[in-house]
């Protein structure tokens, strides 16, 4: 890695796998359940969180020496809320149908524990560049799981990806459906996201025994 030193590179790669915010730290589960029924909202949510986390971590890091510690949580909240409102407004102006689809979930980014967690644990104690990398890394780790879950839930639940019918048409019985294949309607419902996340956690921990807690 020419651009990043080894230490900085780890800030990005760690949260992707061995310290993933969803599967290892078990943070941000609520939004992972809510919006992963389809691939497209998952990706938009991931991108929005990457933006909010990247910029937010830098802003908090720049302000880390002037934020009074008594009100630091409030200051963090204001920064997240501002960024989220910016995302919401921009989506409403330029991607209206998408913002309708995501509706309250964009607002719910504010409550995403990963963001406040990284502000508190990392950005308040580190410089802007490292904070930026940490923010992007954690958001990517979060987004990765979102996309994987969204992929399987849309594929198995609705037989589509990005709305394209990759499995054939369930009504006209073409493609796989002609062979008697059926969509699993349960995949569309929130509990199934939990199970998919659970399976990912299982696979991850069985491949890397160091992650197993006693």
């Amino acid at each position: 890695m020419g651009l990043l030193s080894k230490k900085d590179g780890k800030l990005i790669s760690d949260p992707l796998l061995d310290n993933n915010p969803i599967t290892i730290q078990v943070l941000g589960i609520c939004s992972a359940l809510a919006i992963t029924a389809q691939l497209k909202p998952s990706i938009v949510m991931a991108v929005s969180v990457i933006f909010v986390m990247g910029v937010g971590n830098v802003v908090i890091s720049l302000m880390r020496n002037i934020i009074p510690s008594k009100i630091r949580i409030i200051a963090q909240l204001i920064v997240v809320a501002t960024l989220v409102i910016i995302v919401d407004q921009v989506l409403k102006a330029f991607a209206y149908s998408l913002s309708k689809e995501l509706s309250v979930f964009i607002g719910l980014i504010i409550t995403n524990c990963i963001i406040m967690g990284r502000f508190e644990a990392f950005a308040l104690a580190n410089g802007p560049w490292r904070s930026f990398l940490d923010g992007i890394g954690n958001a990517l780790g979060y987004g990765l799981i979102l996309v994987v879950v969204g992929f399987f839930r849309e594929l198995l639940g609705s037989g589509t990806l990005f709305g394209f019918k990759v499995m054939g048409d369930p009504v006209e019985k073409t493609g796989l459906f002609a062979l008697g294949y059926e969509n699993n309607g349960f995949m569309v419902l929130p509990p199934m996201a939990l199970i998919v996340v659970g399976i990912i956690i299982w696979i991850q921990r069985s491949r890397n025994k160091a992650l197993i807690e006693d």
């Binding site: 934020i67 009074p68 008594k70």
Partner: peptide, 13 residues
């Protein structure tokens, strides 16, 4: 600057 002072906190907010 003493960031723990009340006056600072208020001005900051």
């Amino acid at each position: 600057v003493d960031t723990e002072k009340n006056s600072y906190t208020i001005i900051f907010s």
